[in-house]
């Protein structure tokens, strides 16, 4: 499974979010390949789950995959809840 974390520039907030996604995956004892990128590059990268913040939500809809929209990149509970939700919908065991 591959998770792509996106932000406007691909080097600040998306990296912070990637760290937190990895923390949550570890807690859930799940293995996934997590990468971060800017929005423009995201369209060319195939992933099962794309994650971005709310402000970028309308630029994420053209992506071919499950999209998670977050309100805050530092709220671990929100990340966890929405990832679990995504896994359920994608039929991934955790």
């Amino acid at each position: 499974m591959k998770i792509l974390v996106c932000c406007g520039n691909g080097l600040g907030s998306s990296f912070m979010l990637e760290m937190n996604v990895n923390k949550v995956l570890k807690e859930l004892n799940l293995k996934a390949e997590v990468e971060h990128s800017d929005l423009a590059s995201a369209k060319a990268i195939k992933a099962d789950i794309y994650i971005a913040t709310k402000d970028l939500a309308n630029q994420m809809i053209s992506l071919d995959g499950y999209v998670i929209i977050l309100n805050s990149i530092i709220n671990l509970n929100e990340i966890k809840e929405k990832l679990i939700d995504a896994f359920k919908k994608l039929d991934i065991d955790f």
Partner: peptide, 23 residues
């Protein structure tokens, strides 16, 4: 310009801005 074109996504959490552009 990033703020103007991409919106306030750099407001990364309540009350916090991480202001940046590309190298």
């Amino acid at each position: 310009n990033n703020f103007k074109s991409l919106g306030p996504y750099m407001v990364i959490a309540p009350g916090i801005v991480l202001a940046h552009a590309r190298p």
